[in-house]
């Protein structure tokens, strides 16, 4: 079983290599000169040239790539040109924050999506159905960054109910362990920090989660409707089973398959979407790191962060694939 799952992920590594190569090549074609940027503005041409040689930028592109990939494999992601710190430290600081945000948002999206899907399904053939469907269409028309602004406007500024900048209140010292703030605070028993971190997470996670809930609602509803046309549902009715039983034992697991696939795709997109949320809520995660790096053309960071996003997506895909295998016997029994 585990061997099959691993075999199915055989394409992940080649994809990663190709992505990294593409990323590397694309960014090297930029009209910016990392060597010049790393030097003070008054540096002479010779000094810049020396820096270029020192950074290996004079070598052929494939060689540069090979060197870079070799360093990456050893955990050396290079140094930021702009902030002059190792990229790996920057990532270690920001990645847990982004994961925490994305997972919280996905939990919200998932629970909203699944319950909404069931409600929409319950409304089928009802007069309220077109209304409910139009409501989800309109909900889908609000992208995550508009939700984020709206929430700041309402809960942050107007009601002043929830904080909307950073991860912690200014006065609270940050528990230092893994970088996953909620986990660290709970582990170390710093409950004040825990409460503050939780409150700070509410608005960004809600904004991100609510934006990704409608597609989940719709796919669950659509799959349930499809499945209720299947022979085995009819046969279950003919066997006199109750509707609750049919929904729980026969329909949900089957409808779960396409829903799970979608949630996997959604999670990947959501991870990217967290970038905007982080910018809007001044949340110190990978998204903010990326945006700053892009503005400063800080290539080592862009490369590393880009690659990290790609690894995250591939990991999510692998997990979804494994889950899919667990709940779909047709794939398992080969």
């Amino acid at each position: 079983m585990i061997a099959t799952l691993l075999k199915r992920q055989a394409t992940a590594l080649p994809i990663l290599l190709i992505v990294s190569a593409l990323l590397f090549t694309a960014l090297r074609l930029l009209p910016v000169d990392p060597a010049a940027m790393s030097m003070p503005p008054n540096a002479t041409k010779a000094e810049v040239e020396a820096a270029r040689v020192a950074m290996g930028l004079d070598r052929p592109l494939p060689e540069q790539y090979a060197i870079w990939i070799g360093q990456v494999a050893h955990g050396d992601l290079g140094r930021s040109i702009h902030v002059r710190r190792p990229v790996s430290t920057l990532l270690a600081d920001t990645l847990p924050a982004t994961i925490e945000l994305a997972v919280a948002a996905m939990l919200i999206a998932g629970s909203l999506g699944l319950s909404g899907g069931l409600i929409l399904f319950a409304l089928r053939d009802n007069k309220a159905e077109p209304l409910a469907e139009t409501a989800t269409t309109l909900m889908m028309s609000v992208p995550e960054f508009l939700w984020a602004l709206l929430f700041i406007f309402v809960f942050g500024v107007a009601l002043q109910a929830l904080p909307f900048t950073g991860r912690l209140d200014p006065g609270i010292s940050r528990p230092v362990l893994t970088g996953f703030l909620l986990f660290d605070a709970a582990w170390l028993g710093q409950w004040k920090a825990f409460a503050s971190a939780l409150l700070h997470l509410v608005l960004p996670a809600a904004a991100l989660g609510i934006a990704f809930a409608p597609p989940i609602m719709r796919v669950l509803r659509a799959s349930l409707i499809d499945i209720y046309h299947e022979d085995y549902i009819r046969q279950a009715r003919l066997r006199g089973l109750s509707e609750t039983r049919i929904l729980l034992f026969h329909a949900l697991q089957n409808a779960g398959l396409p829903t799970l696939t979608l949630m996997g795709v959604q999670f990947g997109i959501l991870f990217g979407g967290s970038l905007l949320i982080e910018v809007i809520y001044a949340y110190p995660g990978m998204g903010n790191l990326m945006v700053d790096a892009v503005r400063n053309a800080d290539l080592p960071i862009i490369q590393a962060v880009g690659l990290t996003y790609c690894i995250v997506v591939l990991t999510i895909n692998a997990v979804v694939d494994a889950l899919y295998h667990v709940i779909n016997p047709r794939l398992r029994a080969r």
Partner: peptide, 21 residues
């Protein structure tokens, strides 16, 4: 496979990288 490689990037990130270029 090309589509698969493309989709291993979240769209926002891919767009940002492209715009950088």
């Amino acid at each position: 496979r090309t589509v698969e490689i493309w989709m291993s990037f979240p769209p926002v990130i891919l767009a940002l990288i492209l715009m950088t270029g």
